[in-house]
Write a protein that binds this DNA or RNA. Sequence first.
DNA 1: ATTCTTGTTGCATC
DNA 2: AGATGCAACAAGAA
Length: 271
Amino acid sequence: MPELAEVEYFRRRWDVGLGRKVSAVHLNAKARIGRGVAPATLTKALAGAKLVESFAAAKQMAFRFSGGSWLGVHLGMTGRLEAGDADREPTPYDHFKLLMTGGKELVFVDPRQFGRVQFWQGEGVPPWWEKIPPAILSPEFTVGVVEVFLRRRARTAIKPVLLMQERFPGIGNWMADEVLWRAGFHPQAKAGSFGPKSVRKLHATLREVCAEAMDVIGKDWSDPPDTWLFNHRWKDGGRCPRSKKPLVREDVGGRTTCWSPERQVLGAERR
DNA sequence: ATTCTTGTTGCATC
DNA sequence: AGATGCAACAAGAA
């Protein structure tokens, strides 16, 4: 579920822990989400540490604690962050939990366990955090870098290309479909067939969808308006909010993809 | 019962 | 060497 804006939303759910100290750490050692992290190391470093600040970038989060300790969280497909008091009803998938002063609990819930936690202690930001490419909403995300990347992935359909985190950090399945639908490009158009005008259009639409998603979903997970593809994409018999014609759902590059055949025609990207 | 899933990675192949 | 495609991970939901 979690893409760019949902990740930002979940980051804020742990804000209740800011300024509080960790009184206990629970990591389910058998859960896949903790692969590579020793529960004892985590407990030793975090117990008594104060949660100082948090960050979200792409589909990742980082939580900084006093003492130079960093917790990284990736939510995978079904992960979510919750916060509650001591009387919070546990779920069977509370694989990681921080008990905080004041009786607050910060919980990482993930049924499928494609998500993960990471830990790092040292000067500055963790190495894995530094490797996250420039955000789509940052000045470094230029038309030029999009153009170069599309050329490099020339023979791949544009849909799976938009899912590549190395260039489009935070874009997931629904955002990729939303972008292509708004920009009017067929998901199976080859990345290499995009002309200069279309690359500019794609770049601008990526920015637009990211900004609107952060605004609508990132703040309080409001329902997106019906003018987005988002509200129609999973429904059988769903219709395009612009053309009112039936939407199509089909596998593209291994992922279910929804588009409006009326508006997204192969070849339109050549301009 | 069967097929689906809003993500990533590692591996085989081109 | 770099690009491409796909199975695997796990478990609930439809």
